[in-house]
Amino acid sequence: MNNNQTIEDTEAGIIESFSWFENWEEKYEYIIELGKKLPALEEEYKKDENIIKGCQSTVWLASEYKNGKVFYKADSDALIVKGLVSMLISVLSGHTPDEILDAKLGFIKEIGMMAHLAQTRSNGLVAMVKQIKNYALAYKSISVVGKTI
């Protein structure tokens, strides 16, 4: 899907949604719902090189570069992590490598998820963001040297 909103707009939308939640249950039910809604990644993408493997659960992250924009697909065997990665993708997918690399992603902190999932080794949000940005950086370098993939 093409992302016509800016990254900041999408982030603001998420922060707005979360501001309505009155307790942690509602927050997590929302994230779990996002996890359930994110379509399972096709088996062809579930290969080792797409794994962000951590101590606890497995996250697969695949990307595609089309018309100067990066598109992400992801999956996880854990539902909450899947919901979180779904949120990240909804914010960053469909943007240019530069936009993705510049994204501050303040919403993670705003919605109270930073402290919670950054800790579980490489499988926290931090690792996911890093991998998402790594892809963007790789596409940026490729586009600079004028190659297509």
Binding site: Y28, Q56, S57, L79, I80, V81, H116
Partner: peptide
């Protein structure tokens, strides 16, 4: 259900368990 999901939701209820391998 993935053990990690259980662990996260228990933590939110003040209960510390270990999940993983």
């Amino acid at each position: 259900i993935h053990p990690q999901d259980i662990g996260v939701l228990l933590d939110n209820q003040g209960i510390a368990v270990r999940t993983g391998h």
